[in-house]
Simulated assay, not measured.
Amino acid sequence: MSEFDRGDYRRALLGELAYLPDDDELHEWRGLNDVLVGVNRWRETPAEEIDGPAEIEVAVEILDDAYKAGLIEFRGSNSARNAEMMITHQGILETNFSAYIDPDDDGHVDHQSELDDLQKKIDSTSWTGLAVAASPAKIAIIREKSEALYQAIMQSDADLETRTNACKRVQAVILLLEAPNSPWPEIVSLLNHPSVTAFLATMNLLQFILGMAN
């Protein structure tokens, strides 16, 4: 496995551990085999070209290094070979919560179409239906994602004004989530501000919230 492939494989392993389907409640402890099955499900490499034993050795080495770096936690063993594992907040930040779109950078990925689609969903959202669907477990997920987003903003390379504005809005969201009847229109409005949607993780969070109303 080349250094380039190794880097891609590391991102794939951490990405698989960070992946959280909408219908799951929280990240769960997972064994090595389960993680590898998930990674290979998304790979384009034909099954016959995958060297199973060699892949396991590389995966164990990468995951052990990630454990030492605080990106994942182990349970039951100090090696990924025998441990159950779960990604940490720091690991989530490294995989998919730290991307920032600089509005002054001509090379940034244009996600205006995504924002337009998101606004259409917001405009057609049933706030009553969302409130009914917002179980304590799902609110816990939203709080976890909001806290991770806050940390990502703090550690981003965005300018101070953008970081300050975005952080204040996310802090307000976290406080509103503690309310007995969370005001979802206000929460979505805070997150849908340009200073916050400049961070790609916000899209994931808003999609999750709006998805509860469906």
Rank of each mutant, 00 (worst) to 15 (best):
F4E: 09
F4R: 12
D5E: 02
Y9G: 00
Y9A: 04
R10M: 01
R10Y: 05
L17A: 03
L20I: 07
D23N: 03
L32C: 08
N33G: 11
V37T: 10
V39Y: 02
T45A: 10
E48T: 13
E49H: 14
I50R: 00
D51K: 05
A54N: 08
I56M: 01
I56A: 01
E57W: 06
A59F: 00
E61R: 03
I62V: 04
D65S: 14
A69C: 09
A69R: 12
E73A: 14
E73G: 08
F74G: 00
S77F: 02
S79M: 01
S79E: 08
R81H: 01
R81F: 09
N82Q: 12
E84P: 12
M86S: 09
I87S: 05
I92L: 06
L93V: 12
N96I: 07
F97V: 01
A99W: 11
V109P: 02
Q112P: 11
S113H: 12
E114P: 09
E114M: 11
E114H: 15
D116S: 08
Q119V: 02
K121W: 04
I122V: 03
I122H: 02
I122W: 00
D123K: 05
S124L: 06
S126V: 02
S126P: 09
T128K: 13
T128I: 14
L130A: 15
V132L: 10
S135D: 07
A137K: 09
A137L: 14
K138W: 13
I141D: 06
I141F: 05
Y150A: 09
Y150G: 03
Q151H: 00
A152K: 05
I153C: 06
R163Q: 11
A166W: 01
R169M: 04
Q171I: 04
V173L: 04
L177C: 15
L177A: 12
L177V: 13
E178A: 09
P180L: 10
S182K: 10
E186L: 00
I187Q: 01
H193M: 04
S195D: 11
T197Q: 02
M203H: 06
L205V: 09
L206N: 05
I209H: 01
L210I: 08
N214Y: 05
N214E: 14
